[in-house]
């Protein structure tokens, strides 16, 4: 697993802001004290500040109330353990693996503008190339200025091939790419798509068409549809996931930009509500800044109590 190397960087990211953000929490979460209404409120705010969402935060607080009577002395360590367990339990679905699938293994990457689709594709390409796979990148973003050039640079860096066509319908590029990958026995095909807001109906229709074209060439594909979610995204992320799922079933999330101070809690809400697990996390702009997601470590990092820098 990628993740074993990892966690340090994730923790680094999640902890950088800690000095300012979580000072209050460390104070809150140490020692044995009576559990007050105000403390519950502060825990709620801590959850909300991680973008977990109001509904889910209230649910977790309710759960906490049921298990820890008000005004009784509790060891805060057990409260933290309880919170961690509660959150982990909401992310139990496991992402699927590429192994065991036929060739080519087709990955469709979708998402809102600026969430990091192209960069994430570069990282995925590197990941598979490094494992000795023959990878083909498909430039399906024929809309944004220089999107193809950007993907071309990632293809060079990762050693993956690139299929591009200037200014055509993305479905046409996808069709050609899949035909060629099938004939030449390539291992992995990763399809880039234009960033689209889930509210733009015509672009969502275009996405539906891409998906149908994929199925036409390879009926079992796409084997994996990945939605990139920016870790800084708020509650809108849930709607993004829901809307994209309605057009094309989303298998996994790629949670990007987790090297900042954002906690990416919206991923928990998405997993909890729509049962779409996070498979990868993005932790920087370099090609190797990709990790497999591990809910337990993630939740642990979210509620890190005392930091030793």
């Amino acid at each position: 697993m990628l993740f074993s190397a990892t966690f340090k960087k994730l923790k680094q990211g999640l902890s950088r802001s800690r000095t300012q953000l979580n000072n209050r929490m460390s104070k809150l979460f140490t020692g044995s004290v009576p559990l007050t209404e105000q403390m519950l409120e502060e825990i709620e705010e801590t959850l909300i500040s991680a973008d977990i969402g109001v509904d889910l935060s209230l649910e977790i607080i309710e759960n906490l109330r049921k298990n820890f009577p008000l005004n009784q002395v509790v060891d805060m360590a057990t409260v933290v353990a309880f919170l961690r367990a509660d959150l982990s339990q909401r992310m139990t679905s496991k992402p699927g693996e590429a192994e065991g699938h036929e060739k080519p293994y087709v990955i469709l990457v979708v998402g809102v503008n600026g969430t990091g689709k192209t960069t994430s594709i570069g990282k995925l390409a590197h990941h598979y190339s490094k494992a000795g796979k023959k990878v083909l990148l498909v430039a399906g973003d024929t809309f944004r200025a220089a999107a193809i050039e950007q993907l071309a640079i990632w293809s060079e860096r990762s050693g993956a091939e690139l299929m591009q066509k200037e200014a055509t319908d993305p479905s046409a590029v996808v069709f050609d790419a899949l035909q060629s990958a099938k004939q030449r026995g390539l291992d992995v095909v990763i399809i880039d798509t234009a960033g689209r807001l889930h509210t733009q109906k015509n672009l969502m229709v275009e996405l539906d068409k891409i998906q149908r074209v994929i199925k036409k060439v390879i009926p079992s594909a796409p084997h994996e549809t990945v939605l990139t979610i920016d870790a800084t995204t708020g509650q809108n992320g849930l709607i993004q996931a829901r809307q994209f799922s309605q057009v094309t079933p989303v298998d996994h999330l790629f949670l990007t930009k987790l090297d900042g101070t954002a906690k990416g809690g919206i991923a928990i809400a998405i997993h909890h509500n729509l049962d779409i697990p996070v498979k990868y996390i993005g932790l920087g702009e370099q090609i190797e800044d990709i990790q497999n997601f591990d809910p337990v470590s993630y939740v642990e990092a979210l509620f890190q109590v005392r930091e030793t820098h």
């Binding site: 870790a231 708020g234 509650q235 809108n236 906690k263």
Partner: peptide
């Protein structure tokens, strides 16, 4: 980005 969540302030 208008879609930013709680981290916008940081």
């Amino acid at each position: 980005d208008a879609m930013t969540g709680q981290d916008a302030v940081n």
